[in-house]
Design a protein around this nucleic acid. Structure first.
Length: 502
RNA sequence: GGGCACGUAGCUCAGGGGUAGAGCAUCUGCCUUUUAAGCAGAGGGUCGGUGGUUCGAGCCCACCCGUGCUCACCA
């Protein structure tokens, strides 16, 4: 038995359970059963209960509480819908009752029996038979739940250590069922987004994660190496340049829901790998895309939450279209009095200093404007708002504004002061694109590690001709954070990145 | 990377130089409608790690590891 489980931290509780496992085997009880036919789940059982016609059910789940009273016992089992109480009487289950004495909180069992209501009014299963399906040899950090007089659920000793919850998400999901709901919502948000896009006829595609050259965003990449080709490969920081190649190829509407990877800091809104939706639609511009985003988000809200009105961080947020559309330059002017577009580099710098930010040496004017925006305007964008028309230096892949010099046709969506998407009329002039790449090279040479590389093949694709195209990128994790009111990106990613244990 | 805080039993937490604590969980006994079941008893700890200071260190000091918050970075 010593070599069965080689946990460095085998403690007396685990030893005890391993002994129980042996005792069960001696009784010829299968401790890791092969299957069990389930025909009912906890919530359905409770909702469909009728006193006059007691139903027979087969249910299975993990034991979450046991109350033994000599020759009868109560237990709660937890299944995919919630918890239900089971009642076990020695007279009814016979020898299984002795086996039940060797079962613990955490074990997974199947029961067959009829539904009844106890003296105290709890709808329960009166078991006629009981089967151990999986023996749990490691104790779960069990919390106790009780409903107080006013009907509120009170939880005692809740498993709360953030580190353990993230590292052992499987335990978190067992003992903190409300966490499960966030991830179910996340899944529904993505599937409703996908069905919305599919219904419009857009094609879901897959583009390389391993790329010989990265692009489509300003970020530091993860680098790996391909042995056979003996070349470095980068994990993608964005899908943009490949998806636009497909538009060149004649796919009029393509999207990809994918993991991107950025080799940067981690905090409440950044995980090194994160999920993005990118969408490119031919013959459309950014005006069209704004309406599209409004509709898509409203669709998701309605499908997943049944409403476009939310209360997030104590504020009422309404996602009903249309959203406000405001000019970046005008909003900065309103907030600071400075016309950043016509102001000199030094004027922008001084203005930034006035707002308590010390510009770092070598920053471009576009970068300074962006910082000024973040400090003076962004926190005020509470209701869903499109901020439109950005300085050209900040957007090397966006098309120049049709009638505002120095700007590009770009928008970002903001809610509660947070960015939820980024989109533009895509730059499809290969000569302009090549020039923008050259400008990025200068920025890189000036020390900007996140400036774009020159992607000559992408320019070549544009030379063949890309139709006018609107493009969108939206961070799924942050959208989920917003809609489920979760404070950290780690609360919406099942297995967030952590430093290795030990 | 900087600052602040935290790390003690399976879980939630007390304890701040002198025998390692509580509740729940666990174990033994009693108990055939309980529900944080109850009653009686018991076991369980490298006090994150390594070095110091001290007669004596969960406790004080240094360094390290991990986590959280925050700032920086980051569309």
């Amino acid at each position: 038995m010593d070599n069965q489980i080689q946990h460095e931290d085998v403690n007396t509780l685990i030893k005890r359970r391993l002994e129980e496992l042996e005792e069960l085997k001696k009784k010829n009880i299968e401790t890791f059963e092969y299957s069990f036919d389930v025909d009912s789940y906890s919530r359905d059982i409770k909702e469909s209960y009728q006193e006059e016609t007691p139903k027979n059910v087969r249910a299975a789940g993990r034991i979450m509480a046991i109350r033994r009273m000599g020759k009868a016992s109560f237990a709660h089992i937890q299944d995919k819908q919630g918890r239900i109480q089971i009642y076990l009487k020695k007279d009814d289950v016979g020898e299984s009752y002795d086996a039940f004495k060797l079962m613990d909180i955490g074990d997974i069992i199947g029961v067959e029996g009829y539904v009844f209501k106890t003296k105290t009014g709890e709808i329960s299963i009166h078991a006629k038979s009981l089967k151990l399906l999986t023996k749990s040899v490691r104790p779960i950090p069990i919390a106790k739940e009780v409903i107080d007089e006013s009907g509120n659920k009170v939880i005692f000793d809740q498993f709360a250590d953030k580190e353990l919850r993230y590292r052992q998400r499987y335990v978190d999901l067992i003992v903190n069922p409300e966490i499960k709901d966030v991830f179910i919502k996340r899944s529904k948000i993505i599937s409703s987004m996908r069905s919305f896009l599919d219904a419009q006829g857009y094609l879901e595609v897959e583009t390389p994660i391993l790329q010989p050259m990265y692009g489509g965003a300003s970020a530091k990449p993860f680098v790996t190496h391909h042995n056979a080709l003996n070349i470095p490969l980068y994990m993608r920081i964005a899908d943009e340049l490949y998806l636009k190649r497909l538009v060149v190829g004649g796919f009029d509407g393509v999207y990809e829901i994918s993991k991107d990877f950025r080799n940067e800091g981690m905090d409440k809104t950044h995980n090194p790998e994160f999920t993005m939706i990118e969408l490119y639609v031919a013959y459309k511009d950014y005006e069209w895309m704004m309406s599209f985003v409004e509709q898509m988000v409203a669709h998701i809200c309605t499908k997943v939450f049944g409403s476009t009105e939310f209360e997030i961080e104590g504020k009422k947020i309404n996602f009903n279209p249309p959203w406000d559309r405001v000019s970046m330059i005008e909003e900065i002017q309103k907030a600071t009095g400075l016309d950043v577009l016509n102001a000199s580099y030094d004027e922008v710098k001084d203005c930034l200093r006035k707002h308590g930010i010390e510009p770092k040496p070598g920053e471009s004017k576009g970068k300074l404007i962006d910082e000024l925006f973040e400090v003076t305007v962004q926190p005020k964008l509470i209701q869903p708002t499109f901020l439109i028309d950005y300085p050209v230096e900040m957007s090397p892949l966006a098309k120049k504004h049709r009638n505002k010099p120095g700007l590009v046709e770009r928008f970002e969506g903001f809610v509660l002061g947070r960015e939820i998407c980024n989109a533009f009329s895509e730059l499809n002039d290969p000569i302009d694109q090549n020039q923008r790449f050259q400008d990025q090279v200068k920025m890189r040479e000036a020390g900007d590690e996140e400036a774009h590389q020159v992607d000559e093949d992408f320019v070549r694709a544009l030379e063949y001709g890309m139709p006018p195209t609107a493009g969108l990128g939206m961070g799924i994790d942050r959208l989920v954070m917003l809609l489920t009111n979760q404070p950290s990106i780690r609360d919406v990613i099942l297995f967030p990145q952590m430093k290795p244990e030990k």
